[in-house]
Design a protein around this nucleic acid. Structure first.
Lengths: 258, 258
DNA sequence: GTGCCTTTGTGAAGCGGTGCACAAAGTGAG
DNA sequence: CTCACTTTGTGCACCGCTTCACAAAGGCAC
């Protein structure tokens, strides 16, 4: 249904002229803002499904789990897309954020490594709906090659370069074991890929200009454990500094050499 | 109250999302440092496997992919564990960081939602080696209940509270579909769980004192797309502000939406 | 039109993190 | 012992993000 129920009785020829945003887009959007835009987008999509026409910064911020002032400042980096006294038009804002994030175009994604994680990613519905099209699934294990997952046939990593070139893949997801990640990374950057999403627990070495984002499942757990420990005991264990049998070598060597 | 026409359609004004851990400030370790400690730990484990005894901040920083001054400042928050002129004792530092993160104790983790992602997590080797013991796998789907994964039998979510209490689960991983996540979250916080790792693409509303960390697979891709777009075109599409057929309701749609 | 109400957009202050640069501390040679 | 060298730990300046607070902008009632 068209969102047309909201009818402001307002002289509109006036606004059609003044509403032009000449160059409010000073391409300097802070990283912190970019990281939150997908959050706003999801909240807006939720509102859209409930046929909400406009939303205030206060409500949208609550739905996204952020401060309302922060939300307004974030959106102001994209331009003046709100209406004072009313709020933001949901559909309009969805489009503006999508465009800013580049989700209005089609992105071909290849997933390398089709273990459980690779399968989970291939089946994740949140990708296709946001302009991410999985163009290839690759794995080095012959036992997996040929399997059909999410409508795609798994190919051998030998074809990695071919797949990337032939299908205009611009984003590669690495979901391989840690030992294979750097090798895959080298190969894909060699053929011009500049955006990598890495799930392997290693620090990837990449040429300049290549953007790597890392998702590490165990790091998040460790951060949780830190906070949990704090909550439980009011501080880390103060019992002993060093357990028996494991001593710093330079202390032991000092005692032995003097 | 506000007699405004744009009341939030969702009653969430009383449920505030709070991730702050007040006690984390007391002892003074910055959040940014805590988030990097697991990184250092992994780099140190790599060095340890190669029988390296000591490491300089320069080398360790390179292995972890950070600045050496940052690394030294991070470690200084834990204490003075280095030796000037020599560097850090690898084993000693591993122990100190592990202790600070709480990895020297045993953490019982329950994973709710045993789809592909839940399976990937259950089989992920990086957990057990760091003190995280998977104490339960739960799913609402009867077709999955009873399956054996990573040595555990999947149980029905009906037993969620029982599993948490009986096995002293302190960290819950939510890997369910988005629609089920909040319900699971409510149940586990109700029985005292205060640490949640959420993979579902929703903003969880939790009581004060509960720590939620979120891993969102699609958000990372969207951030990559933003940067990729920047690199490719030098900026987002400048063509048009608004495509045909999708107009802001408070502009031209007035006439059309009678 | 006039006045009141709501909400945006933003200047400015505050806060936390980063990185430089260097003194302090330790090693090792002679 | 002294001297030269290495590396840590940290003071400090800088920078970017967050938050507050408020004027400006728009809607609504009459």
């Amino acid at each position: 249904m068209r969102p047309g129920a909201y009818r402001p009785s307002v002289p509109l020829e006036h606004r059609l002229v003044t509403r032009r945003i000449p160059q409010a887009r000073d391409r300097g959007i802070p990283d912190a803002t970019v990281a939150r835009l997908p959050l706003y987008l999801r909240a807006l999509n939720g509102l859209s499904e409930r046929a909400t026409l406009t939303v205030s910064s206060e409500d949208l911020a609550a739905a996204a789990g952020v401060n309302s002032a922060k939300l307004r400042k974030d959106l102001s980096h994209l331009g003046s897309y709100g209406t004072r006294g009313v709020g933001y038009d949901v559909q309009y804002l969805i489009y503006q954020i999508s465009r800013e994030l580049g989700l209005t175009q089609d992105w071909a994604v290849a997933i390398v490594g089709v273990g459980n994680l690779g399968r989970a990613l291939a089946n994740y519905g949140g990708f296709a709906s946001r302009g991410f099209r999985i163009a290839g699934l690759l794995d080095a294990d012959p036992a997996v090659v040929g399997d059909q997952i999410a409508g795609l046939v798994v190919e051998h990593t030998d074809a990695l370069e071919t797949v990337i070139a032939d299908r205009s893949v611009s984003i590669v997801v690495i979901a391989t074991p840690a030992a294979a990640a750097q090798h895959v990374c080298d190969r894909v950057t060699a053929v011009g890929v500049t955006s990598i999403l890495n799930f392997a627990p290693v620090v990837l070495n990449v040429p300049d200009g290549v953007d790597v984002r890392k998702v590490d499942l165990s790091i998040e757990l460790q951060i949780l454990a830190f906070h949990e420990q704090r909550k439980a005991s009011g501080g880390p264990i103060m019992a002993e500094e060093w357990p028996d049998g494991v001593e710093p070598v330079n202390e032991r060597s000092i005692g032995a050499s003097s």
